[in-house]
Amino acid sequence: MSTSSAAEGGGGARAAQLADRLGRLRERVAAAAAAAGRDPGGLTVVVVTKFFPVADVQALAGLGVLDVGESRDQEASAKAAALAAAHPELRWHFVGQLQTNKARSVARYASAVHSVDRVRLARALAAGAAAAGREVDCFVQVDLAAALGGPADPARGGAAGDDVLHVADAVAAAVGLRLAGLMAVAPRGQDPARAFAELAAVAERVRRAHPGAVALSAGMSGDLEAAVAAGATHLRVGSAVLGTRPGAR
């Protein structure tokens, strides 16, 4: 059975497939932590379920997954609503680029937003969190392409240079938001170890102003070992657990 047909069909075969993949991922994360001299208990794996059905998220919850990542508000809000009663323990992480006009909606269900890259977005999220009576963890997204001396990558988003601290200051000052730390994606064609080392250096600068911003969201299915070695606390993993992502619907 192909991954896509399994995702569509759900059922016992899909649940078994997810259990096997999740088990292998957990072994891989534990090995990466051991190699870096770190406690695997300090790492949070966010399973990114974009374009996969609610049934997959439900199966993952049954396997002990608490942290789920999404990158489109319409899809994420629908999944969160569908599973709110059966799985209130789920923590929803918004990991994609976020338009300001979607911030109020995202603040209603997201436990964390990993892609805060401008002051205007921070203010919009704060307004949404206040309206919902919630507190949302925020990661300031860093444009590592720019940090490494290349051109900015608008397709991936992220703040660069002094803007990183400006956004961090805005988040820290906002009622309803908590500055968790930084997030980044390794630039295409770059050594992820070098990229994540640069992220760790940027994080040190931010922590001088905001000592509590200790979280680092970095690493995906293909480069999580390099991220763990550089101090990542949150890993955003999709294909290693769910298989090849189906197309948008």
Rank of each mutant, 00 (worst) to 15 (best):
S2A: 12
T3C: 13
A6C: 14
E8D: 13
G9T: 12
G10D: 09
G11K: 14
R14K: 11
A15F: 06
D20K: 14
R24H: 07
L25P: 08
E27Q: 15
E27G: 15
R28I: 04
A30G: 12
A32Q: 00
A34I: 01
A36H: 02
G37N: 03
G42C: 04
F51T: 15
L60E: 09
A61H: 14
L63Q: 12
G64H: 12
G64R: 11
V65Y: 09
R72A: 13
D73R: 13
K79A: 00
A80S: 11
A80Y: 08
A81D: 14
A82E: 10
A84L: 04
A86V: 02
H87F: 14
L90P: 11
L90D: 12
G96Q: 02
N101T: 09
S105A: 15
S111G: 14
V119M: 03
L121T: 04
L121N: 06
A124M: 04
G128P: 03
A131D: 15
D137E: 15
F139H: 15
V140I: 09
Q141T: 10
A146N: 03
D153T: 13
D153G: 08
P154Y: 02
A155D: 15
V167D: 07
A170F: 07
G176P: 01
G176T: 02
A180R: 13
G189Y: 08
D191E: 14
P192A: 01
A193T: 10
A197C: 03
E198P: 01
L199D: 12
E204M: 08
L216R: 01
L216D: 00
A218F: 04
M220S: 06
S221K: 05
D223H: 02
V228P: 01
A230C: 05
A232M: 03
T233V: 00
T233Q: 02
S239G: 04
S239W: 03
T244I: 06
P246E: 02
A248T: 10
A248P: 01
